[in-house]
């Protein structure tokens, strides 16, 4: 308490320096994205990475003013946005419904099921890479496959594969359940007594009050999906199906590849195109992150 009250400027200095550290890599990336490849490759590095003349080539690509270098840029943006929105809607809905059911209703096997669900969150994702791919390729009755999963390409290289995987976010369910535990039943009970069915209770009474935690689930899901390069990169071939993150990861491989010189300005600029929207998304909703978590954590 002493430090906090008596010398507030110490706190500002500490926090200010840490803020500089956190922001500097992004600042540097912005500078590099205003260089041409040759400018970057031939000049010694500088701590303030802005070189004259500024090159707006990569910026024009990012803003879709000139997409000659990346003709599929509009698709990347569109797919990233659509995919993120789709996942936000389903994840929030599923987390809310399942979290509510686990918190409020009694049913056979409830605790066992919940425990199993929680345990799955501890499985390292690397475990599921190949099995998921096999399943997508051999999914019965999809994409020309017969009932045994043979003969076609299943979900591979379809738009659907961008949308069908990992819609259930166990952590989201867990947080909604925690949050519901701190939320008195009386309101729902009164609703029940008034004759409202469970859906009206859930969506008209409970949903609005659970908004903070759901906003948290929405933001974390949104950021996760926006940043996900793996699924579009591995499961689809067509450039029209790629998202921005997949395009960046492809670029790091192509632009380094066999020629050895990483085209840093191009890679970094595309990376910024990926980073800035999630930063903006975060800036708009950041207050929900704290309040949402707090609502789940209070005496949870």
């Amino acid at each position: 308490m002493t430090i906090r009250k008596k010398i507030p400027w110490v706190r500002y200095i500490i926090l200010g320096i840490t803020c500089l550290i956190f922001i500097y890599p992004l600042f540097y990336a912005v500078g590099v994205s205003f260089m041409t490849t040759n400018q970057f490759a031939t000049t010694p590095p500088s701590l303030i990475p802005f070189q004259r003349p500024l090159s707006f080539f990569h910026m024009r690509t990012l803003l879709l003013i000139n997409t000659q270098r990346e003709p599929n840029m509009p698709f990347y943006y569109l797919n990233s946005v659509l995919r993120t929105a789709w996942y936000i809607v389903w994840t929030v809905l599923i987390s809310f419904v399942a979290g509510y059911v686990f918190a409020r209703l009694r049913f056979r096997g409830k605790n066992a099921i919940f425990l199993i669900l929680l345990m799955t969150t501890m499985i390292p994702p690397v475990v599921t890479m190949a099995p998921t791919y096999l399943m997508m390729a051999r999914f019965p009755l999809i994409g020309g496959n017969n009932i045994l999963g043979q003969g076609g390409q299943g979900f591979l290289d379809t738009y659907a594969v961008l949308l069908v995987l990992n819609l259930v976010n166990i952590l989201g369910i867990f947080l909604v359940r925690l949050s519901m535990n701190t939320f008195p039943r009386a309101i729902e009970d009164s609703g029940r007594i008034d004759g409202a069915n469970i859906f009206r209770v859930m969506f008209q009474l409970v949903f609005p009050i659970q908004k903070p935690i759901l906003a948290y689930v929405a933001i974390t899901t949104g950021v996760l999906i926006w940043n996900d390069w793996y699924v579009p990169f591995v499961f689809t071939d067509r450039p029209q199906f790629q998202t921005l993150a997949a395009a960046v990861s492809r670029l790091t491989s192509v632009a380094i590849g066999q020629y050895g010189i990483p085209d840093w300005p191009r890679i970094i600029a595309m990376g910024l195109g990926l980073t800035i929207p999630s930063v903006v998304m975060f800036a708009i909703f950041q207050r929900h992150i704290v309040s949402g978590l707090a609502s789940a954590a209070v005496k949870g």
């Binding site: 659509l82 789709w86 936000i88 809607v89």
Partner: peptide
Amino acid sequence: VAVLAAVA
């Protein structure tokens, strides 16, 4: 967000 998801 809902409209975008519907488009998806």
